[in-house]
Computed example of a mutant assay.
Amino acid sequence: MTVVSAPAPSHASAPQRSAAVTTAASVGREYLTFRLGAEEYGIDILRVQEIRSYEPPTRLAHSPDFIRGVINLRGRIVPILDLRVKLQCPEASYTDFTVVVILDIGATVIGAVVDAVADVVTLTPDVIKPTPQFERQGHVDPAFVTGIASLGERMLIVMDIEALLSSDEIGLVTKATPE
């Protein structure tokens, strides 16, 4: 597990710096990191129920391209969404590293196909920077991206998986919070 926190200001004494880093690390959240094409993404680890190897699901007629079908997960029918197709990755090929991340979002369980799972990292709010604002083009709503985190040489796109799965286009999860 990697813990990332911002350096303490240089004017703080050694004990103050140590306390600042400890406090910052203690308010960090854990994210599961995974690859989609050349990019690395992170989602809240509290949404992850399990990680399974990819097995072809049962296809549903007239479903969107990014819905691969359904699987029977211990008696529960779970829709399988291919995030690579949904987020328009240039290639969505299935390899030995392709996995399905089973996500538990309230009363809804869904499987998300990703190229590979990397690791779990702890990020503090100060490490996650806002995403650049671009005019919306294509099918990817910038509301699904909560920020970008730099982890050494790695750039991690932090996603709000619940917002993605709640979108009108997918409609798999309905927000539990009143509007």
Rank of each mutant, 00 (worst) to 15 (best):
M1A: 10
T2D: 12
T2M: 14
S5A: 11
A6G: 12
P7E: 00
P7N: 10
P7C: 03
A8D: 06
S10H: 09
S10P: 07
S13T: 15
A14V: 06
A14P: 14
P15T: 09
S18F: 10
A19F: 08
A19Q: 11
A20L: 13
A20W: 11
T22M: 09
T22I: 13
T23E: 08
T23W: 03
A25G: 06
A25W: 04
V27M: 09
G28W: 12
R29E: 13
R29T: 04
Y31I: 04
L32M: 00
T33M: 03
E39L: 11
E39K: 15
Y41F: 15
L46F: 07
R47N: 05
V48G: 00
R52Q: 10
S53W: 02
Y54T: 08
Y54R: 03
E55K: 11
P57F: 00
T58N: 11
A61H: 11
S63A: 15
D65H: 15
F66S: 07
R68D: 07
R68P: 03
I71A: 02
N72G: 09
R74V: 11
R74F: 04
R76L: 02
I77E: 04
I77N: 04
V78N: 01
I80M: 02
I80N: 01
I80A: 09
D82G: 13
L83S: 11
R84T: 05
V85E: 04
L87A: 07
C89G: 05
E91K: 11
S93P: 15
T95M: 01
T95E: 09
F97Q: 11
V99M: 10
V99N: 15
V100R: 02
I102Y: 02
I102F: 11
L103A: 13
G106T: 06
I110M: 06
V114G: 07
V114P: 13
A116V: 02
A116Y: 06
V117C: 01
A118P: 06
A118I: 04
D119Y: 03
V120W: 00
V121N: 13
T122G: 11
L123Q: 01
P125A: 09
D126M: 08
V127G: 10
V127M: 04
I128G: 02
P132T: 07
P132R: 12
E135P: 08
R136G: 05
R136M: 06
G138C: 06
V140M: 04
V140D: 10
D141Q: 08
P142Q: 15
F144W: 07
F144Q: 02
T146K: 04
I148G: 01
S150D: 06
L151G: 13
L151M: 08
G152L: 01
E153D: 14
R154K: 14
M155C: 05
I157W: 04
V158N: 09
M159H: 08
I161D: 13
E162V: 06
A163H: 06
L164I: 14
D168Y: 11
E169L: 11
I170M: 08
I170W: 00
G171P: 05
L172T: 05
V173H: 00
T174L: 07
K175G: 10
K175V: 05
P178S: 08
